[in-house]
Design a protein around this nucleic acid. Sequence first.
DNA 1: ACCATACCGTCTAGTCTGGATTGTCAAACG
DNA 2: CGTTTGACAATCCAGACTAGACGGTATGGT
Lengths: 156, 156
Amino acid sequence: MVLGLVANAGEATPYQLKQFAARSVGNFWTIQHAQLYTECERLAKAGLLDEEREEGGRRRRTYALTGAGREALDAWRATPATELGELRSPGLLQLFFGAEPGPLAAAQVESHAAKLAEYEELHAQAKDWLPDGQRLALEAGIAHEREWLKFWGALA
Amino acid sequence: MVLGLVANAGEATPYQLKQFAARSVGNFWTIQHAQLYTECERLAKAGLLDEEREEGGRRRRTYALTGAGREALDAWRATPATELGELRSPGLLQLFFGAEPGPLAAAQVESHAAKLAEYEELHAQAKDWLPDGQRLALEAGIAHEREWLKFWGALA
DNA sequence: ACCATACCGTCTAGTCTGGATTGTCAAACG
DNA sequence: CGTTTGACAATCCAGACTAGACGGTATGGT
């Protein structure tokens, strides 16, 4: 994930990666922001990222892919994942354990509707210039929010 | 989640909880098996579970809800979750970062089809005697596997 | 000059993860 | 009958991760 983020940015500080990730890939693959700092360090130590550090002030570290980093990323991309995603849904958990469906569904509908609106707005703005993969991932997100909305809507 | 599991079982050892969880609620809320042992202990210490330990042999610990445990569970059930689920999907991650859609989609279709078949078989067998919440959660799982299949299918 | 606010990185305690390890038991086998 | 085997069950450990607090740094406005 981190290699992908850096590749996508060209070069970036962990903080910038965090900002970008939070709005995009974070919707289906999250890590803690603190993790980005240690992970970049680790990848730099492993020779996959190149690290440049400011001397004064905030002493930001800026990272870019090395040749080895690009190779590792390409290798990863070329090995299609067979694993299914993991879902972690508090709402479904409550439903499973016998919560009253009505109020739960109402709460979930609201949340999912908000998320869907967010995705749709982003899609409307960005669909023409987003790289294919990113656009497709966003469209997957939209389709799934719609599906959740349908599911919870039927229960409300 | 653990309170729910214990309530559902009436009384059970962590090992039994693990077995049940792996086949059911584990599909949308997972924890490590080792975690069940520590969590049950913690809940017992907090007065929410009652612990009974075998003297000889495997020294199994059997847990059951206490009054306070049932109250805590009821309170949790009565507070509808507004949080959205979190998804963690390696396939989408690769797609996002520019992997070739074709082969990736093919791999994902296969995995999702298998999962869907598993869910559908379970549904066919159990739909008549499963508690409502559990059946609904299973139906949500089925709907979502179908949706994923549609998504990746269109890309393959 | 000063303040408010946003930016950015680091730290810590506690929790969780993955997997190995140790031990228990019942049934099958010679 | 003693032994072996494989499933059952609990525990342990090092390392990774989490949540969020904290402490500095920059910037624009007064």
